[in-house]
Amino acid sequence: MTDAAEPMIRAVDLRKSFVSKQGTVEAVKGISVEVRRGESFGFLGPNGAGKSSTMRMVAAVSPITSGELRILGMDPAKDGPGIRARIGVCPQEDTLDTELNVADNLYVYGRYFGLPRADVRTRVEELLEFVQLTEKAKAKVEDLSGGMKRRLTIARSLINRPDMLLLDEPTTGLDPQARHVVWDRLFRLKQQGVTIVLTTHYMDEAEQLCDRLVVMDKGLIVAEGSPLELIRAWSTREVAELRFGVGEHEALAAKVADLAERVEVLPDRLLLYTSDGEETLAKVHERGLAPAVSLVRRSTLEDVFLRLTGRTLVD
C-alpha cells in the first residue's frame, strides 16, 4: 500500500515522443508535476498541448520516453497492472460495448478487476444510481444520449473504488445541459475526497472542478497554481470587452492602450485588462469611441492562457 506522504502522481522531467514515418514528434517535452491525495488536479491546454499523451502515461497504458514517473508510488513500466487495478480511467472516446446493456457494461468491467461477482452486482446498482441511470439499466448502450454514455463511462471508471480517477476531456462533445450534469457528479466525487485528475480545454470546467492546475502548451507546462492564483498572477481583476466593426480593432487598440494595464487584440474584439472595467469603459466612451457591443467581466483562465501563449484555448 501507498503511504500517505507519497504523492498520487509524481512526474519529473517527463517526456513522450512518437516515432512515425514522418519523423519524431515530441508530444510532452519535459514536465514535472505532483498530485496529492484528495486533490482535484487539472491539465488545461488547447488540443495538441500534450495533455492526452500525459494522461495515457499516467494511466499506465503508454510507456514513458524519458524522465521519471511514479503513480501511487509505483513504476508504470514495472507495475502497470498493479497501478491500473487501483485507478479509474474515463477516456476521451467512449469504449463501451454496444452489444451489452448498460448494467452489463459495468458488471463485466468490474470482473476484470478480480472483484467477486456479488460485490460487483452491489456496486453496479450503487453506481447506476450515482450517475442517474438506474432506469436505463437494461437499455442498450447505443440508445443512450452522449451525456448518458459519458456518465456510464464515469460509472465504469469507479467500479473498482479507485484511489485516483483520471478523466480525459470529460465533457468534450456534450451539450451544455449534459455538461452540467457531469460536472455535478464529478463535484460530488470531489467532495467525497476522491483524487481527481482531469484534462480539459474548457476554462470553465477547470475553474469549476480543479483545486490546482497546470496550463500546458506545446508539450510544456507554462504555469501552475489554483485557478484564483493563476488569474491573480497573470491577469487583472476585470476585463472590458469592446467589439467594433470588422477590421477596425487593430487600429483602435492604439487609441485605448493607455486606459488599461494591457490590451489584447482578437479578430472580433478588443480586451482591455483593468482593475475596474466599468470605469475603463466610461473612459472609452469619453474619448468618443462607440463600440457596437461592450461588456465588463471578471478575468478567467482563458485570459491567463491568452496572456501566456498569445492564443485562445478553443480555436
Partner: peptide, 25 residues
Amino acid sequence: MATTDTATGTTPSSAPRSPLAGAVR
C-alpha cells in the same frame, strides 16, 4: 454513497498473476 473506501467484506481489486488468471476474469 461511499466511492473510495474499501468497505468491509469487499475484496480489493488486483492485478492478475498470469495471462490465464487474467483471461478467467
